[in-house]
């Protein structure tokens, strides 16, 4: 990869990110009032964005579902490794995601839920998927 190109790409990203963060300060300087519509969209858009991001992270689930076949009474995708049960990395991510959601709902401990989910995902990947 071209080093200069990479630095340029990072510089562009940094400039855009700073611009976005500074935008309200620039747009509403000198006591200009913020339109209500913008305030409201600012309040509701983050939930939609997070939902999109989660779908982005779990996009492999879709691929796994496409590969599912019913075999010996067990849902199987790819080759069985442990107890004949196996699934793709999308399914292990989905299961880990459920663990994160449930544990966070229960304890509201950010670090605990991140650690639990990640360890669960690593274990599931190790035992139930074939790379």
């Amino acid at each position: 990869m071209d080093r200069g190109w990479m630095i340029a790409a990072v510089a562009v990203s940094a400039a855009i990110t700073f611009f976005l963060r500074a935008l309200p300060f620039f747009a509403f300087r000198d006591g200009r009032k913020m339109p209500e519509k913008l305030k409201r969209l600012g309040g509701i858009l983050p939930s939609a964005i997070m939902a999109v991001l989660i779908v982005y992270c779990l996009k492999d689930v879709l691929l796994d579902l496409k590969n599912f076949t019913l075999m010996n009474g067990v849902f199987q995708s790819r080759k069985g490794i442990l107890c004949g049960i196996s699934f793709g990395c999308g399914i292990s991510e989905l299961l880990s995601a459920c663990l994160v959601a449930v544990s966070y709902k229960y304890r509201h401990h950010t670090m605990l839920s991140i650690a639990l989910g990640t360890v669960c995902n690593i274990i599931l990947l190790y035992f139930f998927t074939k790379f």
Binding site: T110, A115, G117, T118, I122
Partner: peptide, 19 residues
């Protein structure tokens, strides 16, 4: 470590639940 990148997904889920 296969699957360590999952912690970002976990963080997204937590932020999503908070919201």
């Amino acid at each position: 470590f296969q699957g360590i990148d999952f912690c970002m997904t976990a963080l997204f889920i937590i932020i999503f639940i908070d919201q």
